[in-house]
Write a protein that binds this DNA or RNA. Sequence first.
RNA 1: GGGCAAUUAGCUCAGCUGGCUAGAGCGUCUCAUUGACAUUGAGGAGGUCACAGGUUCAAGUCCUGUAUUGCCCACCA
Length: 713
Amino acid sequence: MAELNKAYEAKKVEDRIYKLWEKSGFFNPDKLPKRHKTPFTILMPPPNANDPLHVGHAVFVTLEDILIRYNRMQGKKTLWLPGADHAGFETQVVYEKKLAKQGRSRFDMKREEFYKEVWDYTQKNRKTVKEQLKKLGASCDWTRDTFTLDAHIIKTVYKTFKKMADEGLVYRGERLVNYCTKHRTAFADLEIKHETRKDPLYYMKYGPIVVATVRPETKFGDTAIAVHPDDKRYKKYIGKELKIETVVGKRTLKVIADKEVDPEFGTGAVKVTPAHDANDFAMWERHKKEIEGPLQVIGLDGRLNENTGLYEGMKVEEAREKIVKDMKTKGLIEKIDEDYEHTIALCYKCNNVIEPMLMRQWFVKTKPLAKEAIKAVKEKETTILPKNYEKIYFHWMNNIRDWNISRQNWWGISIPAWLCEDCPKGEWTVTDGKKPTSCSKCKGKNLKQDEDVFDTWFSSSQWPFATLKYPNHKDFKTFYPTDVMETAADILFFWVARMMMLSIYQTKKAPFKYVYLHGLVRDKDRQKMSKSKGNVIDPLGVIDTYGTDALRIALTIGNMPGKDTAISEDKIRGYRNFVNKLWNISRFVHLETKNYNQNKRPTLSVKDKAILKNFEKIVKQTTKALDEFRFSHAAENLYHYIWHTYADKVIEDSKPILNNTKTRAARQYVLVKVLGDSLKLLHPFMPFITEEIYQQLPLQKKQTTIMIESWPT
RNA sequence: GGGCAAUUAGCUCAGCUGGCUAGAGCGUCUCAUUGACAUUGAGGAGGUCACAGGUUCAAGUCCUGUAUUGCCCACCA
């Protein structure tokens, strides 16, 4: 060590150290020494297998690895199970963009061909991601590495779906779903975003009544006019059939009374278009006996269909313009409010307006599942950190609506449901994967599988018990429920809440004891990182320049639960200096303790004892902070101790003491003891350099790696 | 429309159950210097803790209200 460079060179050390860890086998809980009994489990949120890691991934790897390494040193039988997500729709979009660049499209391909190409693509990416996780120092058990499309995962997903179907918790229903006409698929409510916009509000003459709407182009799908039951203006029309002149001839519409109609809004009268508006759909459901059902006028291609006469084939916006123009000509528009402010639903991916579309899809009945998921948190079977996210969780759970899990995509897990073409009503048979031999209803043999795939979140919501091989595998019995789910706060509903629901449904136990949520990584000005802004920090680039340990400390200090964290190259450089400081501290101690024999404990002076006593406080503080998930505090405290107490005070004071033969041995003992234990405390945060120094320190008893050293007490 | 939070040094943020003469890192200023480390050391400047009330022996810390900012949820034409 003494011959080594004055400056620590992370690049020369890290890969070698990671190989040492892998060789030790201790990432695998089954290979840990016998003293590691009580299990401690974290399931890694599987990164998408469609892109390399970004700095946000580095945050979760760092925090989870801190927990894992800390608990491993605490003598726990520690499992950190890594994985990769096929990320259905997300990956399909990424891959379609690649195809587009080559002038190709999935619609020119066979579904199987497309699937095969995406499969190969994700497998290649998985390798990259795995290498990157290793670079970040992740001490996860690679022997249990799991892909969301592995056979045992799919098998579990099918079993759950079958069970839910049998118990009536999933149903196939015709509902208005959020449909993106660009991506040609439906989405769950969670997957759409809302935006406030100003659009014209058209007052259209429907016979003697004027109705206000922002969507004149759906008028062909009107099946009624609705007014408030107590509205004096319209009372005389309620229950009557009104003759109405339209742009394409005359028709009649019935006037119904519904208390959901706000007399204050617009004219107090509304056109009812059940096929293209969720409110109107609900209205029709309330008045099924009085009025006609949904009449679809917009197709899945986003164009007006055959029910719209001469407007057939026009895109929605185009048709709207034309219809308004034609109505004006015919004198059917009373007035237009140009700046009507309202919110519209958009596709989260392409920002296109979401078209409510009437489709038959598979839905999960969420209310009973949510009830149990609420109970688990209320009864503290699961604790969410930071605490205030529990309120958010309850709020969402209490207002939950049924979950559409059908997607019209190609990349994903196909739905194990078969439609019988012999049954007049089209009966569905759900299995746990295999094609049924005959229809469960009529025993017919003409069965056709549903072409849709599952929402990726439906399968990933089963990750906790699927990865551990529920119900019979020893991993499930040993490691479930897991200890901590550490993940990004923005997927609380998408993933965490649904894992709670489905895991409790299948296993009767909440899947984790703690949920720890972290925020987004922002740049030093708190701006979101994005490629277009050019403020993206590439973790691998940073590692190359400053080393993994520096990056990890920089991402830990100042990172508060549930809050966004700011990072800059300056900050990382600052912590690189700390890494180097630790290196030089160790060089000094190493130089000064060359011929020191630790077997004989020398008599300590008052000052020596004071140093040890003070250090005990640091040990306690660090342990407490980690037990409370206060990563930033733990790291900051250690940083401060090492630099401004151990280096600046202890070492400086030691120089004369080491030069005195009478006091030398005792001080050597103190320096080695405190440095040795400090390395252990620091190891979860900066695993590489602490291992490198540990390997060379003249400690009395040493393990093959600091990873399995006992945590200081 | 509903909910959740934040507001402390130039910047990024701590300050957990009330005791602070309010802290850290970065930045900044002065000085030192190649003898573990210049990726260094010593020292300094810098804050009426958003605002207004209240509870208390005591409030950055608890309560109420106001302002500003951010985030999330939401089927009213």
